[in-house]
Simulated assay, not measured.
Amino acid sequence: MEMKFGKDTYAIALICIIGILLILGLSWQSDPNLKGLPFIPSWLYNWTDSYKNATIRTAVPFVGLSLIIGIWLSLKKASFNKFILAWFILIGVVVLAELGQYFIPSRDADIKDVFWGMVGSFIGLGIMLATNLLTRLFRLKSK
């Protein structure tokens, strides 16, 4: 099934590009703490800057981004393979973010961050894929 691109595709693409640029920009700051950023609400930087959330915090933006992508793929009735492709692209983003940190003297590339980015992406896309499957099941049972 071929996907058609309309205005919604461009809107979702713009949202995703902004999301990816935010992820990369925040990942490549010299200070990993978000407290000094004026556009981050205090409840969010208090949670992310807490030591106990230092590794899992990588998953959060990827859950959000993958939910947006998953919603779009669902609306387009995309195949399972498109969801897998989206997951691999998101893994590429988290790997790029970590590779960039390798070149920043005050930061460290961390394989755990790659893992949590993969998990976050899997959760978001998985929620939408499961929603698709359940919707299809209920439609089949109601016929």
Rank of each mutant, 00 (worst) to 15 (best):
E98N: 04
L99A: 08
L99H: 06
L99Y: 09
L99P: 02
L99V: 13
L99K: 12
G100V: 09
G100K: 01
G100R: 04
G100P: 03
G100Y: 02
G100F: 05
Y102W: 10
Y102E: 06
Y102L: 10
F103C: 02
I104D: 04
I104S: 07
I104W: 09
I104T: 04
P105W: 11
P105T: 08
P105Q: 12
P105M: 10
S106G: 07
S106P: 05
R107N: 06
R107M: 06
R107E: 05
R107H: 04
D108Q: 15
D108K: 15
D108M: 15
D108S: 15
D108C: 14
A109C: 13
D110M: 09
D110C: 10
D110W: 04
D110G: 06
I111P: 01
I111R: 10
I111L: 15
I111V: 15
I111A: 13
K112N: 14
K112W: 08
D113H: 12
D113Y: 06
D113T: 10
V114R: 05
V114M: 12
F115Q: 05
F115D: 06
F115E: 07
F115W: 09
W116V: 04
W116M: 15
W116P: 08
W116I: 03
G117C: 10
M118Y: 03
M118A: 15
M118T: 13
V119F: 15
V119A: 15
G120C: 07
G120Y: 05
G120H: 05
G120N: 05
G120D: 07
G120R: 01
S121F: 04
F122G: 15
F122E: 05
I123W: 00
I123Y: 00
I123L: 04
I123M: 01
I123R: 00
G124R: 01
G124T: 03
G124C: 02
G124H: 03
L125G: 00
L125D: 00
G126E: 03
G126D: 06
G126S: 06
G126Q: 08
G126V: 07
I127R: 05
I127G: 01
I127F: 08
I127N: 00
I127S: 02
M128Y: 00
M128F: 02
L129A: 07
L129R: 13
L129K: 11
A130P: 01
A130K: 10
A130T: 11
T131C: 10
T131R: 11
T131W: 11
T131A: 11
T131F: 12
T131G: 07
N132E: 14
N132M: 11
N132Y: 09
N132S: 09
N132T: 11
N132F: 02
L133N: 14
L133I: 12
L133T: 12
L134D: 01
L134K: 09
T135G: 07
T135H: 09
R136Q: 14
R136V: 04
R136D: 14
L137N: 13
L137S: 12
L137H: 13
L137K: 15
L137Q: 14
L137F: 15
F138H: 01
F138P: 00
F138C: 09
F138D: 00
